[in-house]
């Protein structure tokens, strides 16, 4: 399947902030940068069961987000992890798997180049109906990460989806806080997952 990388549009109002408010004129790069990362925790199975957002810091200090919803792992930008106390990249994946019969498992995986303190946000599982989507799961989460570098947490292991073959999984207002109290903000996004 051809890689389909969705680049978020440059919105100065939605600049990525790390501990301080970004200037109103800050913009995200319009093009995806290919940088080496060794620590992205994403597998092909994860990419096919949900959506992944990767934050990378540009040389000018602005931040870029890339949304991945395909299975070409080799095409994911990979920045070098420096472990210098400064958050330079992070990846958040929301997935829906173990989809047997009528229930599935909703989970997230988060990785960063710095020890992580906590992550919070909202996650949901809905039908794919455009006009009146049914909600199978919708709740906030606030998870302590205890200084970990790569973490996977189950939000709910038995989300009842009835007889659906496709659902939309998405998240909003996800914020990562590192042990050094830096923050990474992931833009809201969603992805249709098929059984």
């Amino acid at each position: 399947m051809k890689l389909k990388t969705i680049l978020l549009s440059t919105l100065s109002a939605v600049a990525i902030m790390f501990g301080t408010l970004a200037p109103a004129t800050s913009t995200m790069a319009a093009e995806s940068q290919v940088i080496e990362i060794d620590d992205i925790e994403v597998t092909s199975e994860q990419l096919s069961d949900g959506v992944t957002v990767v934050l990378t810091k540009n040389e000018d200090g602005t931040f870029e987000q890339t949304v991945f919803c395909d299975t070409d792992i080799a095409s994911i930008p990979q920045p070098m992890a420096t472990a210098d106390g400064e958050l330079e990249w992070a990846a958040f994946h929301l997935g829906f798997n173990d989809w047997n019969d009528d229930t599935g498992r909703l989970y997230f995986t988060i990785s960063a180049d710095e020890p992580m303190s906590k992550v919070k946000g909202n996650a949901y599982v809905q039908s794919t109906s455009i006009l009146f989507p049914a909600t199978y799961y919708s709740d906030s989460f606030d998870e302590a990460l205890g200084g970990s570098m790569n973490t996977s947490c189950t939000l709910k292991d038995n989300v009842d989806t009835g007889d659906e073959d496709k659902v939309r999984v998405g998240f909003s207002s996800v914020v990562l806080t590192t042990v050094a109290n830096e923050k990474g903000y992931f833009s809201n996004t969603s992805q249709v997952v098929e059984r």
């Binding site: 992890a81 989970y107 570098m149 947490c153 189950t154």
Partner: peptide
């Protein structure tokens, strides 16, 4: 058993969550 959560304190380059 079913694994529901893993908190790893080492880099993925050393050992990843699947491992």
């Amino acid at each position: 058993y079913i694994v529901l959560d893993i908190y790893s304190y080492v880099s993925k380059n050393i050992i990843d969550l699947d491992q």
